[in-house]
Design a protein around this nucleic acid. Structure first.
Lengths: 239, 239
DNA sequence: CGATGCGTTTGCGCTAGCACAATGTTTTGC
DNA sequence: GCAAAACATTGTGCTAGCGCAAACGCATCG
């Protein structure tokens, strides 16, 4: 289901962008120019912003919320490639010479995004100092993360992979609560299994065990990590 | 073992670069300038060009041969992330805002490489039209490949992953021989296992079985795929 | 040419994690 | 407030693939 975004209007203030790396070197005028060309969209949770394989005609900035990059195999298995959090550009296929999106972007929460037509990418990177550089830096970070995923999948057991996935989630999208660090958005066992290449059943068993030993707590669709250090231990346990 | 490259001198001719995407839009003068700044190195097979985590002070162009990008886990497991073939840039950490190499580069054959100091990267991309764009296009391709690897590892069985790995190898680095397509360089079961996240034993069993059924032939450290189509079937078999 | 080392094959037992299935719990929509 | 849907838990077999081990073939080098 491609989303039909509700285009509720939002005050576009230059302070929205001024602190984000790709824009941080730009002056007020440049930022206002960039904002003037942007379209704002609001999406509900669980809808797609764009679909894998479609023509990459726009690129996006996530202003608020979380988005997942998801790929679907020929026989219907979903794989969650990564999570995108507020302040990050996504759908930047053009920056890497692609004509189509490499994955489907699905909102994990209600989100607010800006978007621009792909056609002005070249103009942006030529005109605005640091825009391209900082963007490619972000790409570099994602590549590093993907690399880590590959190594994890190749060498670790399911228990360790789930531990790694939880650690990544609380690092990137966690907030402190009274009894630990909670993941910002709702997440199911199924989601976690799609991040780690296993089944929701195995994830459920694992989390149950960890809850018994006090490493995590979980309410419906919500996970709090109480003992991150123990999770690190689990994630690096010798075979 | 970091390699001490033998710096045999090679005639640097502009035709070496003129056909490679990052340089294809440049005129003879520009290419001669670029070559003038390059250092040539020859490496034996099985030595490292640079090491993961080291300062990324040079970037490289593979003129001849094959190089593997390899990562090593804390407990000594190797994972082969990808293969680089002649004509490709590698070690371009700087392009992605990294200060260190994300993986170790190990030669799979005798190789010939050009290299430049990282410090002139910005100058290159600013001065030479198409250089950055084409490079990022290559990066995009690699990202796509990594993404596929992740999906494969998450959803496919060992047999299918090995089939995928072989298919990738013959596509990227294969040449036609009388009885099929042979992989250009020597490759062990151990190498294949490090590409697919399994053990050399399982790879050996698999290849033995495939050899019996006529899909492949293998001599010592050499593999020929006789029936690529059957390999495709194996790689996509329904669970 | 014999010896040493690296790569390969194959057998055997075991277990991590999957498939299948049934039941329980929380949320949502009317 | 009740029904339906979505999410979660837990039990029971089963098997793909691993770990361990032994033996064999091929290359390299003195």
């Amino acid at each position: 289901m491609q989303a039909s975004p509700s285009s509720r209007h939002v005050r576009l203030d230059e302070s929205l962008l001024a602190d984000l790396p790709p824009f941080s070197k730009l002056d007020g005028l440049a930022i206002r120019n960039i904002l003037a060309k942007a379209t704002t969209h609001r999406f509900d949770a669980g809808v797609s912003v764009f679909e894998e394989g479609n023509a990459a005609d726009r690129f996006y900035l996530l202003l608020d919320g979380y988005v997942r990059a998801v790929r679907i195999t020929p026989d219907g298995d979903q794989v969650i490639a990564l999570h995108i959090s507020a302040g990050q550009l996504f759908g930047i296929a053009k920056a890497l010479g692609r004509e189509t999106y490499p994955a489907t972007a699905i909102t994990a929460t209600e989100t607010l995004v800006l978007s621009w037509p792909t056609s002005i990418w070249d103009d942006f990177s030529a005109r605005y100092d640091g825009f391209a550089t900082e963007t490619y830096k972000a790409v570099g970070k994602r590549i590093g993360e993907m690399n880590n995923r590959i190594v994890e999948m190749a060498t670790l057991h399911v228990e360790q992979r789930i531990a790694c996935a939880l650690l990544r989630l609380i690092n990137q999208t966690g907030h402190k609560v009274s009894d630990g660090i909670e993941i910002d958005f709702q997440i199911t066992r199924q989601d976690l299994s799609e991040m780690t290449g296993t089944t929701l059943h195995t994830v459920s068993r694992m989390l149950s065990a960890w809850e018994k030993s006090g490493v995590i707590k979980s309410r419906h669709k919500k996970i709090t990590v109480c003992d991150p250090h123990q999770l690190v231990v689990l994630s690096t346990a010798r075979v």
